[in-house]
Write a protein that binds this DNA or RNA. Structure first.
Length: 949
RNA sequence: GCGCGGUUAGCUCAGUGGUAGAGCACCACAUUGACACUGUGGGGGUCACAGGUUCAAACCCUGUAUCGCGCACCA
């Protein structure tokens, strides 16, 4: 470090090193490398989104994994990219254009013009989140950045759609779907969230037509759908109503209809609950999923009830709702319908009621179950995908998500993949209703040859494949002038114009965004070509994502992986927690509780943000975010900075060799602590426990290295023995160069800066840390050769630990005597064994003593405070000025605690059951403990006695 | 309703059967000594509750309470 500033200034170094990494192409993965592969694909953020703390958490973990893998000598691909996010992006652009007064509705512009505007928007805002990820230090291979609407990616989507269609897994049908009246599109079940809603339960009565004067009472939350009722259902086992099945009731709305059109049948259906409401259910097949199922059951039984749609796409009542409700919003209509029932004298009561209502996740409005013509997918490779997780071949971390996954996989429903939007991958199906002879001759001929109603052909003078499917027929039509309905599919864009020219029209809908993201792990790597990248890096190693998209994305990727690569897409899935504020509330814009990560980076530095978030994010738990976490990260970086600065200020060259003969106990101790830390780090990584890893780093570096080792080393560094000094510096350099490497995945910027500044890069081979710490080898645990060469034993560890305890007690003595920390005092050390001069120097330094007098024969007189440890006894003679009473109180309290511990252990040891059944080691431990406490007891008693004198 | 997770110091959390821990916060002391983005010392817990298993339970079992999440839902 040429310039040594007193405090670490992240702003001055972060951009510099990021540019350095980019210029060195260090993030670029080499598909031809002989090194073993490690790969992650990023969960692609919304292309026009901005970085949130959730992204910070997610991407920091990925970056840590990627950087660690590089240091482990792997060839790493972290593949970045963005998602077009259909509904979200289209909504934002549409809203913006409306606000600007340019349009009232997207129809004003038309599909093409509108899409131009979305692309413009994407160009303008698209790069933001990518730039933000760079600020965070993300080591993605930007040369491989992908976007789900890139031409090549779009071709993958199209290809997959056509393939699944050919396999008979995709079909179009009029079904009841979740309709979002705000976004005006169908949604998949996963995009609907249930919300508790306070409303009313309305009880109204209907007259039985065959028995005038007899009424049935029905409870409903949705009186506005009465005009859409086509039956009244009761349980056939319900004695109250069973005899009425087959009769009819008069539907009260629309009131203007003639009598015979008001008649709807009373039907029996086992699904009707006796207990709920009155046990009589109104059946609205067009606007309720369960009622629709009843409708289907009646159809199967050959006694089909009707189906009347009364709500339109915008959530407003249509003409079938009758004069009273027509044109009203569904919620307004609810009020009016209730009033009407009251007016007719049919409303019996209205009671407050709380039920769950499905909401559109994006638009946050109640969805409307609605009949609509949509495309559906029967999931492919579902069984294999379910089994791979159940069998543990793909591991989920934490494991419990495997159960959630399994449960969902067990109840798969067909996926509604079409969306009534413009922004997205347009469904590659062209259709036409025409005479059979209107198809090109070679198609007709090909169909005739197979006899099937479908055939694949290649377009004349082209390689474009088209799949023709006569959906109106099961076999090839026998007559040329038969009216047919054909769906034609092509994988390539140029096939489309040919089909257009034949009079086909392309389906106007686009695909659900997740229908493109589920291909992400392989479509980003060049599939369907067997590219080097795909061969080298698929399947990926780890996936890091939030559990909220386990169904949306993870499960579907697994299925796509099996279907198209015949292999799982990733070996491990790490589910992060959800970031919440410190009160445990979800981060949200409206609450204003979501801090901008970029502000935090500006204030504290990217490393600080990373460290703070990781430290607060235990595996599988939600994270309560507090800016203090980041502050702590900043402080930690500063500590690291200053520890290096301290080394720098001692001067001297970095010299690799440590002389075993010159090692102090403290040197040996810190080397052993380093070894322990490396082990802990490795096991934390093996278990994906990143908060444990940061805790280890924190403890090792701050407590063990800075607080103890560095302080003790000053005894040597401030002394006059040159050889010893140099040796201590060599130990420091050894520790720091290992520490920086262990920190690197977590704190990439500061470690790179210090790696160069401290000169640790100098002696390393160019590709192993010489150029950048990114490729410096991850520290290995100290092996037996190393330990025996430097004579590192458990004894050294024990010695320093007991020495440190001794010092802590000595400091405590001073505190108890009310001596200010800056007052130099004299201690007397009655040592048990041999103690080196250096050890005494260290004692003196760490006790802030004027002198530590070694006297094995010291006999304390009065007014002497004392502590005892394995090392011996330490005395603090006080010439007057001691608060005898306070010290007595303290000692008495301590003695009480000691005695209680003794009696606890004694109780156990006197218990025969205990001494007989317990393992020998545990028994020994207890005996040992008893001796220790007894020693402490006699010592405390002696000290107390000394005070009495 | 079913399932999952949590409940340990004021706060956030470690701790899978053998002496209750960390960080933050708090209190006191220390200011030309790498770092006040600091150092030293200290106080602070009936491990949600009730049973059970065990020589021994924060930890294993059963139940209860409570908070959170997911799935399925009765109109």
């Amino acid at each position: 470090m040429s310039e040594i500033s007193k405090a670490y200034e992240p702003q001055a170094v972060e951009d510099k090193w990021y540019q350095f990494w980019l210029a060195g192409k260090f993030f670029v993965a080499d598909a031809k490398s002989p090194k073993p592969a490690y790969s992650i694909v990023i969960p692609p953020p919304n292309v026009t989104g901005v970085l949130t703390l959730g992204h910070v958490l997610n991407n920091t973990i990925q970056d840590i994994l990627a950087r660690k893998a590089r240091m482990d000598g792997k060839e790493v691909l972290w593949l970045p990219g963005t998602d077009h996010a259909g509904i979200a992006t289209q909504t934002v652009v549409e809203r913006t254009l409306k606000k600007a007064g340019e349009i009232k509705h997207r129809d004003d512009l038309g599909r093409e013009k509108f899409l131009e505007r979305v692309w413009e928007w994407k160009e303008k805002h698209g790069g933001i989140i990518i730039q933000q990820l760079k600020k965070l230090g993300a080591s993605c291979d930007w040369t491989r950045e992908r976007f789900t609407m890139d031409p090549e990616y779009s071709r993958c989507v199209q290809r997959v759609f056509v393939d699944l269609y050919k396999k008979g897994l995709i079909y179009r049908g009029k079904r009841m779907v979740n309709w979002c009246p705000a976004s005006l599109t169908a949604l998949s079940d996963e995009e609907v969230v249930m919300k508790e809603q306070r409303g009313s339960l309305y009880y109204f009565k209907v007259e039985v037509a065959e028995a005038p004067g007899t009424f049935l009472t029905i409870a409903t939350t949705r009186p506005e759908t009465i005009p859409g009722d086509t039956a009244v259902a009761v349980n056939p086992k319900d004695p109250r109503y069973a005899h009425l099945i087959g009769k009819h009731v008069l539907r009260p709305l629309p009131v203007e209809l003639p009598h015979e059109q008001k008649l709807i049948p009373i039907i029996g259906d086992e699904h009707v609950d006796f207990e709920f409401g009155t046990g009589v259910l109104k059946v609205t097949p067009a606007h309720d999923k369960a009622d629709y199922d009843i409708f289907i059951r009646t159809a199967v039984n050959g006694a089909a009830i009707g189906l009347i749609e009364v709500i339109n796409a915008h959530g407003k009542m249509n003409e079938f709702a009758g004069a009273d409700l027509r044109g009203l919003d569904r919620f307004e209509a609810r009020k009016i319908a209730t009033e009407k029932l009251k007016e007719f004298g049919l409303l019996e009561k209205e009671e407050p009621y709380t039920n769950n209502v499905g909401y559109s996740e994006r638009a946050d409005v109640p969805i409307e179950p609605r009949m609509s013509l949509q495309w559906f997918l029967k999931y492919p490779s579902a069984e294999k995908s379910r089994a791979v997780v159940a069998k543990g071949e793909m591991k989920f971390h934490p494991e419990r998500w495997a159960k959630v996954y399994d449960h969902w996989m067990g109840g798969l429903q067909d996926w509604c993949v079409s969306r009534q939007l413009w922004w997205g991958h347009r469904i590659p199906v062209w259709s036409m209703k025409a005479k059979f002879s209107a198809l090109p001759d070679y198609v007709v001929q090909a169909l005739r040859e197979t006899g099937n109603s479908y055939v694949s052909t290649t377009l004349p003078n082209s390689s474009v494949q088209v799949f023709w499917n006569i959906v109106s027929h099961h076999k090839v039509p026998s007559l040329d002038d038969e009216e047919i309905e054909v769906q034609a599919l092509t994988e390539l864009a140029d096939g489309g114009s040919y089909l257009d020219s034949l009079g086909f029209t392309q389906d106007p809908d686009v695909l659900d965004t997740w229908f493109s993201s589920w291909l992400w792990p392989f479509a980003t790597m060049g599939w369907p070509e067997q590219t080097d990248t795909l061969k080298k890096f698929y399947p990926t190693t780890d996936l890091v994502t939030g559990p909220d998209i386990i169904f949306f994305w993870v499960a579907r990727m697994i299925m796509a992986g099996y279907e198209y690569m015949d292999e799982l897409p990733f070996q491990n899935v790490y589910f992060t927690g959800i970031i919440r504020d410190k009160q445990g509330r979800k981060m949200s814009k409206s609450l204003g509780n979501s801090p901008d990560p970029l502000d935090l980076i500006a204030k504290f530095g990217a490393d600080a943000l990373r460290f703070g978030v990781m430290r607060a994010a235990p595996l599988g738990q939600d994270i309560l975010f507090d800016e203090q976490n980041v502050e702590l990260g900043r402080n930690f970086c500063n500590k690291l900075w200053n520890a290096c600065r301290f080394r720098q200020m001692q001067g001297g060259e970095v010299q690799g060799e440590i002389d075993p003969k010159l090692l102090t106990s403290d040197d040996k101790w810190i080397l052993l602590k380093l070894d322990a830390a490396i082990h802990e780090m490795n096991s934390a990584f093996a278990d994906y426990k990143f908060s444990d890893a940061t805790a280890t780093l924190y403890r090792f570096f701050w407590s063990e290295y800075c607080d103890w080792y560095v302080e003790a080393s000053k005894a040597v560094l401030q002394g006059s023995d040159g050889a010893r000094k140099a040796n201590t510096l060599a130990v420091i350099d050894f520790i720091l160069s290992h520490t920086l490497r262990m920190f690197h995945p977590f704190l990439p910027f500061i470690t790179e800066e210090l790696w160069h500044g401290m000169g640790y890069s100098v002696d390393m081979p160019e590709n192993q840390g010489g150029k950048t710490i990114m490729f410096a080898p991850w520290p290995l645990p100290l092996d037996d050769d190393f330990k025996s060469h430097y004579d590192l034993t458990e004894r050294d560890e024990k010695f320093i630990e007991s020495r440190n305890e001794f010092i802590a007690q000595g400091r405590n003595l001073r505190r108890n005597a009310n001596l200010p920390a800056n007052k130099k005092v004299k201690f007397i050390f009655k040592s048990v064994g041999k103690t080196s001069a250096t050890d005494i120097e260290v004692l003196k330094l760490l006790l802030n003593a004027e002198n530590v007098e070694v006297n094995p024969n010291f006999q304390p007189s009065k007014n002497v405070l004392a502590v005892r440890a394995d090392l011996g006894e330490l005395f603090l003679p006080l010439e007057g000025l001691i608060d005898v009473a306070a010290e007595k109180t303290r000692l008495t309290k301590e003695l009480e605690k000691i005695e209680s511990e003794i009696s606890k252990v004694e109780q156990k040891l006197n218990n025969h059951a205990f001494t007989q059944k317990v393992p020998a080691t545990v028994l020994e431990e207890h005996k040992q403990r008893l001796v220790e406490w007894q020693n402490k007891s006699s010592h405390a008693k002696a000290a107390l006695a000394a005070l009495q004198n």
